[in-house]
Amino acid sequence: MNVDVSTTPHSARLESRGLVEAATAMFLVGTLAGVSGVIDEYPVYGGQALRYLLAAVILLAAARLAGLRFVRLTARETALLAALSLTGLVIFNVCVIEATRHGGPALVGTVLGTVPLALALLDGRPSPRLLVAAVVVVAGATVTTGLGSGDLAGLLWSLGALVCEVCFSILAIPLLPKLGAMRVSAYSVALAVPMLAVAGLFADGAAMIRVPTVPELAGLGYQSVIVTAVAFFLWYDALPRLGPGTAGLFAGLIPVGAIATGAVLGLGAPSVPDLLGAALVVAGIVVGLSSAGSPAARAGRPAGAGRSAAGGSRSAGAD
């Protein structure tokens, strides 16, 4: 007798866990804006190399404690992992840095706010309701960040960051069943360190790294532990449980996390557009989740999708 795994209690628990993980991961990524000010004067590429180095140590140690052994990769898997690290981590950082210089953070935030729509369009045959939800989330992110000002170069760099952000999820999907969230996070972060070091040497020379001040050390530590090690693992653990279309909706929580962090740190109370944008993001996520949980959406899932997601996570020691 055929059983629809998406309706079983175990599958429901896996999906609920994925929802919490995706929401938490994107909210934590949003908090990055609140702590970025303390490392503004630290060399960018050297700082990011230090950030990923510490995150790699944490993730590799966690994998070891979880009993996860090193997995030998095929040539294709190695190429995918290298492409993930190069685009989703290294080039993404370069694009965001250059886009901010040309157009400011508002332009970058607005363009990155279209991530949910991009992932929904790439997620096979998304339902009309999921597409509507993605558009609502994009609208909320746009209202929250504002279009800002910038030139053509700023827009092009922002679009590059958008492509890299999409690659961060799409390139990981074929790797997750074999490696699991912990190893994909650890391996990709470790690969980014030498890439950023080379970029730093070209950009800043010997000045790419220096002893950080106490506030800078705290900021880099927060980026390493919370925004990288924790958020990366949560996102990659949620991705196979939800699929890129549904998981992508939670990218709209990035500006919400930034607003909340700013309020907690006393950097300014949220404005009316901030609150309106956050409300639109939440509304879009609710619409998208109702679409993902509808009978029609469940019927359209590939057979065994729930088993594949759960099995891959268990083999990686995620549960």
Results as ranks from 00 to 15, higher is better:
residue 1 M to F: 00
residue 8 T to F: 02
residue 11 S to G: 15
residue 13 R to T: 14
residue 16 S to T: 12
residue 18 G to Y: 03
residue 19 L to G: 06
residue 20 V to R: 07
residue 20 V to F: 09
residue 22 A to D: 07
residue 24 T to D: 00
residue 24 T to P: 00
residue 24 T to E: 00
residue 28 L to H: 03
residue 29 V to H: 02
residue 30 G to Q: 05
residue 34 G to S: 15
residue 34 G to K: 06
residue 38 V to C: 03
residue 41 E to M: 11
residue 46 G to P: 00
residue 51 R to D: 00
residue 53 L to H: 10
residue 53 L to G: 15
residue 57 V to A: 15
residue 58 I to P: 05
residue 60 L to I: 12
residue 64 R to E: 14
residue 68 L to D: 05
residue 70 F to A: 09
residue 71 V to H: 07
residue 74 T to F: 03
residue 80 L to A: 03
residue 87 T to M: 14
residue 91 I to E: 01
residue 93 N to Q: 15
residue 94 V to H: 06
residue 96 V to Y: 07
residue 97 I to T: 11
residue 99 A to K: 02
residue 100 T to Y: 00
residue 101 R to L: 14
residue 103 G to V: 11
residue 103 G to S: 08
residue 103 G to W: 04
residue 105 P to G: 01
residue 108 V to I: 14
residue 109 G to E: 11
residue 109 G to F: 13
residue 110 T to Y: 02
residue 116 P to A: 05
residue 117 L to Y: 07
residue 118 A to G: 06
residue 119 L to N: 05
residue 121 L to V: 14
residue 122 L to D: 11
residue 123 D to W: 04
residue 127 S to N: 07
residue 128 P to N: 04
residue 131 L to K: 03
residue 131 L to W: 11
residue 131 L to T: 11
residue 132 V to P: 05
residue 135 V to D: 09
residue 139 A to F: 11
residue 139 A to K: 04
residue 142 T to D: 01
residue 145 T to M: 15
residue 146 G to C: 12
residue 152 L to C: 07
residue 153 A to R: 15
residue 155 L to D: 06
residue 158 S to I: 15
residue 164 C to N: 08
residue 165 E to Q: 15
residue 169 S to A: 13
residue 174 P to G: 06
residue 175 L to Q: 07
residue 177 P to M: 09
residue 179 L to S: 02
residue 181 A to T: 09
residue 187 Y to H: 04
residue 196 L to Q: 10
residue 198 V to K: 07
residue 200 G to S: 10
residue 201 L to I: 10
residue 209 I to P: 00
residue 211 V to I: 07
residue 216 E to C: 11
residue 217 L to E: 00
residue 219 G to E: 02
residue 219 G to W: 05
residue 221 G to L: 07
residue 221 G to F: 07
residue 225 V to T: 12
residue 226 I to Q: 00
residue 228 T to L: 01
residue 228 T to G: 01
residue 230 V to R: 00
residue 233 F to D: 02
residue 233 F to I: 11
residue 240 P to S: 11
residue 244 P to R: 05
residue 246 T to G: 03
residue 247 A to I: 08
residue 251 A to N: 07
residue 263 A to N: 05
residue 264 V to T: 12
residue 265 L to D: 09
residue 266 G to D: 14
residue 266 G to N: 13
residue 269 A to H: 08
residue 270 P to F: 12
residue 274 D to N: 13
residue 276 L to E: 04
residue 277 G to I: 10
residue 281 V to S: 03
residue 283 A to K: 03
residue 293 G to W: 01
residue 296 A to R: 12
residue 296 A to H: 07
residue 297 A to L: 04
residue 299 A to G: 12
residue 303 A to F: 04
residue 312 G to R: 09
residue 313 S to N: 13
residue 313 S to K: 12
residue 314 R to F: 06
residue 315 S to Y: 10
